[in-house]
Design a protein around this nucleic acid. Sequence first.
DNA 1: ATCAATCCCGCCCTTACATCA
DNA 2: TATGATGTAAGGGCGGGATTG
Length: 266
Amino acid sequence: MDRDCNTGLLLGLGRVSGDDSLGSLLPPEVADVKKKLQVLKFDDILPSLTLGLSTVVEKSAATDELIQQGCSGSPASSFSNSSGFKRERDGCGEEKEAEVYMKVGEEDEDGSPRKKLRLTKQQSAILEDNFKEHSSLSPKQKQDLAKQLKLRPRQVEVWFQNRRARTKLKQTEMDCELLKKCCEKLKEENTRLQKELQELKSLKLTAPPFCMQLQAATLTVCPSCESSICSGGGGGGGDASPPNTFSIGSKPHFLEFPFKHPSAAC
DNA sequence: ATCAATCCCGCCCTTACATCA
DNA sequence: TATGATGTAAGGGCGGGATTG
C-alpha cells in the first residue's frame, strides 16, 4: 500500500523530526504525509498520542441515556432544532425519502438555524456494524440503511464519510507512532556505529600489530566453495573495502543481512 | 473516435454545535 | 455558572471517473 511507501520515504529522508527547510524539495507523497504530521502536531519527536478505538459506540452509558431521552420526541434522532439541508443529490427516489425525513430537521419556533443532530446509541451501533462490514456503501445499501435508521440517505453518507476520516486519522497516528520508534532505533544504531567507528580508528592508529593478529584470526573457509577467505583485504572478490567477516564486538544489524552467509564474500 | 459538459462520489478542510471536565 | 477542550454532524470545495450529447 502507499502507506508503506510513505513510511519508507520518511525513514529514508529522516523526516520525522526537526528542520523544515527541505519541505519544498520533498516529493508530493512525502509532502502529503508531512502535511498530515503537521495537522497532528508532530513537529518533533512528539509525546502523548492517543491510540485505540474511540467510536461513538464507546460513549458512556450516562451520555447514551441523555441522548436517548433527548430524541424521545423524534423516532429518528435528536435534533435540538434545525439544520440547513441544501444538498440532496442521491438518486433512487431519494428526494421522496428526504421529504419524509426532512421534518426531523425542521426549524424550531424561533427559526434559529443550524442546530445539530445527535445520533442515538442504537443508530450509531448499527452504523458501526455496517461500517465494519464495508467502509463504503452502495446506493442501495445507503438507501436501506437510511430507511432502517429513519435517517436521510445523505446523513448515512455523511456518517460514513466522517467515520472513514476518523479511521484514517487513527491509522495515521499509529503510523506516526511506528515511525517515532523506528527513528529512535535508528538514532541509537547510528550512535553505536559512530562509537564503534571511533574505536576502530583509535585501534588502527595505536596498535597495527593487533590488527594483523585479527586478520589472521578471521581467516575462514567458505562453506559453499570451500576456498579460503582472508579477511585482511585483497582476498575476497577483489574488493578493496573491508570484508564483512571482519568485526569487533557486536555486528551492526544491517550487516547481518544480506551478507550473513560467508559465501557472500566470494 | 474525440471532446466538452455534466453528474456522481469520495476526500479534505472547516464550521457549528453539543457535551464534558 | 462560565469556560475551554473535545467530539462529531454537516457544509462546501475540489478532483477523478463515468456518462452523455
